[in-house]
Design a protein around this nucleic acid. Sequence first.
DNA 1: TAGGCCATGTAACCGGTTACATGATTAG
DNA 2: CTAATCATGTAACCGGTTACATGGCCTA
Lengths: 181, 181
Amino acid sequence: MNVRTLCLAILYFGETTGYDIKKLSMEGKYSHFVDASFGSIYPALSKLEKEGLVTCRQEAQDGKPPRKIYAITESGRTAFRTELMEPPGPNVFRSEFLLISMCAEIIGPEQTARAIDTHIGHLMAELDHLKKIRAETEGAAAHWTCEYGIHCISAGLDYARNNRSALIDIAAQTSLQNAAQ
Amino acid sequence: MNVRTLCLAILYFGETTGYDIKKLSMEGKYSHFVDASFGSIYPALSKLEKEGLVTCRQEAQDGKPPRKIYAITESGRTAFRTELMEPPGPNVFRSEFLLISMCAEIIGPEQTARAIDTHIGHLMAELDHLKKIRAETEGAAAHWTCEYGIHCISAGLDYARNNRSALIDIAAQTSLQNAAQ
DNA sequence: TAGGCCATGTAACCGGTTACATGATTAG
DNA sequence: CTAATCATGTAACCGGTTACATGGCCTA
């Protein structure tokens, strides 16, 4: 799912600005499975406008640059529905922490503890964030999606907490072996 | 974690070729949290060699091009350990399916069912794959990491299965409303 | 005999990030 | 007085993918 599709998805539910699309994708209800920066959103919107999939209406503001409010067109809706029809690709998951955990023996128990605690912190923050979104968000599908995220992150958090000391032990034992050699 | 760091990590545990690094990152024990193609691995290895972080020894083979076996150097080990010291960034998670689930109302119950079934299929395949790796892999840290993956994917799979019909209902109800308008 | 595996590598391309430029307003 | 929020946009850069080139061996 590229930024273009994300814009179409958000605009399908109502008109917005590039600025607000970024907020939605970074803090809002889309934030736990997408990401987009201004440098990709603004060009994507201009391109969509050129292609006739969205329209743009300007709203003057004093001081600030005028808000460019985008709305999806009928052909935009069709294009988006067509895109949604094709089966979803697999999830993409990248984890710096799991590379570290795999190398726990190399860095030793103290650093391992630090890394897993940082990781647990990340997960807690993400979970809090998702719960907040769930509370603020309406719409059954959005709720379902949110709940999915909460469920998965909770599971990860549980594992990390319950097996924290096991990983640190692994790091400790193996570093002892390394030292003994 | 870029490809460069991945190469260093793998070489830390023993010498290999670019070809085998790709296999490890696509099918092996690193596969569920990293990814790399030849087009990024080969240039990364040459660069690491230039920087003196790895060395390369060529092994002739008849017919095939010679295997270039890379090994990490002492400064490579130091560089890698230094990189591992800094706290892990948050996990990256991208999901096409969750964008679809959020738009369940738009595509209706049949397409929603299709999408979630595809998604469940992906998760099952990944889980199988991870279990296979767990069986084949030695090393306590690698096991811990593998188990983490299994735990998280199982949780996702459970949610998807247990709430499959709920999502399809959401899609059905809302499409009825759309039709009624 | 077609396709997959082994094994390397390069070049074109692409999607995206980062950093910059602009500038008023408001909150701490 | 500083930092953040609002609001747009561009240009340089970068990490990575895709597709190609090469070619022998082995299996179905």
